[in-house]
């Protein structure tokens, strides 16, 4: 069975790159444009792993992660933070919000896949 990945990013460029990378690697990909949409989409899609950006309008990555962790059904889903943030403080905040791991943009497709493999069974 294909693993399902929910990606949340406000950049169309990054969304498309994720889509291509993940589809090529045989994942099923569901996309959302910001945290709010991410939480909406989450309900119906039952992802195996979530990849999210931090800086997004409406609801940022921190808020989104907290939202997922509060959700009874999805609180154990691994969440990878995909961000250019190079600030250790941001990393901490993401962790405190409940992120499983992180990937620094720009990402190498192979590394993204590795990271996903790493947090999923």
């Amino acid at each position: 069975m294909k693993k399902k990945v929910l990606t949340v990013d406000d950049s169309r460029t990054i969304r498309n790159m994720l889509l291509v990378t993940l589809n090529n690697a045989g994942f099923e990909t569901i996309q959302a444009e910001d945290g709010v949409e991410g939480l909406e989409v989450l309900e119906g899609c039952n992802p195996d792993v979530i990849v999210t950006d931090i800086n997004m309008p409406r609801l940022d990555g921190f808020g989104f992660i907290e939202g997922v962790r509060r959700n009874e059904k999805y609180r154990a889903v691994p969440i990878l933070v995909l961000t250019t943030e190079s600030d250790a403080e941001k990393k901490n905040r993401a962790r405190q919000a409940g992120a499983t791991g992180w990937i620094v943009k720009p990402f190498d497709p192979a590394k993204l896949i590795d990271a996903i493999e790493r947090v999923t069974a």
Binding site: E85, S86, D87, I103, V104, P106, K111, A115, R118
Partner: peptide, 18 residues
């Protein structure tokens, strides 16, 4: 280079060295 995703400063936030 893509194979070394860059931390753009020295704050210690390193990319995953897979």
């Amino acid at each position: 280079k893509a194979e070394s995703p860059k931390p753009t400063d020295d704050s210690g936030f390193q990319p995953i060295p897979f």
